[in-house]
Simulated scan of single mutants.
Amino acid sequence: MLRVSGDAFATYWVRREAIKTLRQLDDRTLRDIGISRCQIETAVAGNFDLELVRIR
């Protein structure tokens, strides 16, 4: 039980750091990697469907 809680906390912490890092990028860089600012949390959570992204 403790290990599961520890793993969940570690996953949470890694995702928060990824979100923080992506938020520091400018909009052009985000666009270059295929996401917009409003999609950062969804992309980090893994719920981002790249098939729906339109490359401009």
Rank of each mutant, 00 (worst) to 15 (best):
Gln24Asn: 07
Ala43Gln: 01
Phe48Gln: 08
Gln24Lys: 14
Ala10Ile: 00
Ile40Trp: 07
Met1Asn: 07
Glu17Cys: 11
Ile19Gln: 05
Thr42Ile: 12
Arg28Trp: 02
Gly34Ile: 13
Asn47His: 14
Val4Gly: 00
Leu22Asn: 03
Met1Ser: 03
Asp27Gln: 06
Gly46Val: 01
Gly46Leu: 05
Gly6Lys: 07
Phe48Tyr: 15
Val14Asn: 11
Arg54Gln: 14
Met1Gly: 11
Arg15Gln: 15
Gly46Met: 04
Arg37His: 09
Ala10Lys: 05
Tyr12Trp: 09
Val14Phe: 12
Ile19Ser: 09
Asp7Ser: 09
Ala10Asp: 04
Asp26Gly: 05
Thr21Trp: 14
Ala45Lys: 15
Leu30Thr: 04
Val4Glu: 10
Asp7Lys: 14
Trp13Thr: 13
Arg15Glu: 15
Gly34Ala: 14
Asp27Ala: 03
Asn47Lys: 15
Glu51His: 01
Ile33Phe: 03
Leu2Gly: 03
Cys38Lys: 10
Arg37Tyr: 08
Leu22Ser: 04
Ile33Asp: 06
Met1Val: 10
Asp26Gln: 05
Cys38Arg: 12
Leu50Gln: 02
Leu30Glu: 10
Glu17Asn: 10
Cys38His: 11
Ile35Cys: 09
Leu50Thr: 07
Glu41Val: 11
Glu17Val: 07
Trp13Tyr: 14
Tyr12Gly: 01
Ile55Ser: 02
Val44Thr: 09
Thr11Trp: 08
Gly34Phe: 13
Arg16Met: 13
Asn47Met: 13
Asp7Asn: 08
Arg16Glu: 15
Ala43Glu: 00
Asp32Ile: 03
Trp13Val: 05
Thr42Phe: 04
Arg15His: 15
Asp32Gly: 01
Ala45Gly: 07
Tyr12Leu: 10
Asp32His: 06
Val44Asp: 10
Val53Lys: 13
Gly46Trp: 00
Thr11Glu: 15
Ala45Val: 11
Val4His: 03
Ser5Ala: 02
Asp32Cys: 01
Gln39Phe: 04
Asp27Lys: 05
Gly6Thr: 00
Gly6His: 03
Glu41Ile: 09
Ile40Thr: 07
Ile33Thr: 03
Thr11Asn: 14
Leu2Gln: 08
Asp26Val: 04
Gln39Ile: 00
Gly46Lys: 02
Val4Ala: 09
Ser5His: 04
Ala10Cys: 01
Leu22Ala: 05
Arg56Glu: 08
Leu22Cys: 06
Asp49Phe: 02
Asp26Tyr: 06
Thr21His: 13
Phe48His: 12
Leu25Ser: 04
Ile35Met: 11
Phe9Ser: 12
Asn47Ile: 08
Phe9Arg: 12
Trp13Glu: 12
Thr21Asp: 12
Val4Cys: 01
Thr29Met: 09
Thr42Glu: 14
Leu52Phe: 06
Gly34Asp: 11
Ile33Arg: 02
Ile33Trp: 03
Ile33Leu: 11
Arg37Ser: 08
Lys20His: 05
Arg15Cys: 10
Asp7Pro: 00
Arg56Cys: 05
Arg16Phe: 09
Arg3Leu: 15
Leu2Met: 12
Lys20Gly: 00
Thr21Cys: 12
Asp32Tyr: 01
Ala8Val: 03
Phe48Asn: 05
Leu52Ala: 14
Ile35Pro: 05
Arg15Ala: 15
Val14Met: 11
Phe9Met: 14
Leu52Arg: 15
Ala43Cys: 11
Cys38Gln: 12
Asp49Ala: 02
Cys38Asn: 09
Val14Ile: 13
Cys38Thr: 09
Leu22His: 06
Gly6Glu: 07
Ala8His: 05
Leu50Trp: 12
Ser36Lys: 13
Arg3Phe: 13
